[in-house]
Design a protein around this nucleic acid. Structure first.
Lengths: 138, 138
DNA sequence: AATCAAATTTATAATCGTTGCAAAGATATA
DNA sequence: TATATCTTTGCAACGATTATAAATTTGATT
């Protein structure tokens, strides 16, 4: 779990002015590495921040994206998902419950960009789909 | 380019009743391997099939998905994209023009599923993002 | 502390891709 | 031809996201 002071510092590193809302959202992202959707972030913070607007959550995440504070995952057809961990790792989405899991410890070769494609490649995303352990049982 | 007779045969292989609309859509997909969106398919077929409904295109693509005739790409945040080539290959999306390109000839190891994850993995998607040659120039 | 400009947040409306639904049309079988 | 089933169609509804403009907060200046 992260404190709001830590979130504050984190934003400073990216030269983002740490408003109350931005700091709360940053703290949430640092503390909940579940690749949350906008809706999930909004619902989690609303109780303790009743005036928070969903538009602010959208605006803030777009600001974070522009400044490379977070990474947007394009693994879920329904919603945008966000990840504070911008290092090379893969993801798995469960078709049954919709949860997105990290898969670490993949060979680093997987994340290298192919050569001589003619494209200027800037990022890779490796996404697995299937059923998670919990959903398999039920 | 494929003929409607070939599209007809193709659908038969998947035990899908080849209506006029389904055959036309199948023929389009076989002939245009550009990972088209629903909109693109609809706009392409509309002129020669004025009664075609966009809902039919949606219904048909969902039918094709259920029967594994096509693969849905989750590389484009904006629209669903479809690929008749269901073999293992990677994709590249240009942030500038939005076009989705195939990247073939990737080492097959890239498409192997990681072991001991606890998940029942059923598919992988490898997506690169950047700028294509054509957009780099302009 | 009061003022003022700029930045940020907010609520609401608008947009757009997708799905739900019920009616109309087509197809196949008896 | 009659009937049941499948397919297509048009329109309404939905949900995620963005646009917009007003309200609020912040920070600097006096």
């Amino acid at each position: 779990m992260y404190t709001s002071a830590q979130a504050h510092k984190y934003l400073n590193q990216f030269s983002i002015k740490p408003s109350v809302q931005r700091t709360a959202i940053m703290e949430y992202l640092l503390s909940h590495r579940t690749h949350p959707t906008i809706e999930e972030i909004f619902l989690a913070l609303s109780p303790s921040m009743p005036t928070l607007s969903k538009t602010t959550v959208y605006n803030t995440l777009n600001l974070f994206l522009e400044n490379r504070v977070v990474q947007q995952l394009v693994i879920d057809e329904k919603n945008a998902r966000f990840d504070v961990d911008t290092s090379s790792h893969a993801h798995f989405i469960c078709k049954s419950c919709g949860k997105v899991y990290d898969i670490f410890n993949m060979p680093s070769a997987l994340f290298e960009f192919p050569k001589n494609t003619g494209f200027s490649i800037q990022s890779v995303e490796i996404s697995y789909t299937g059923v998670c352990e919990h959903c398999k049982e039920s």
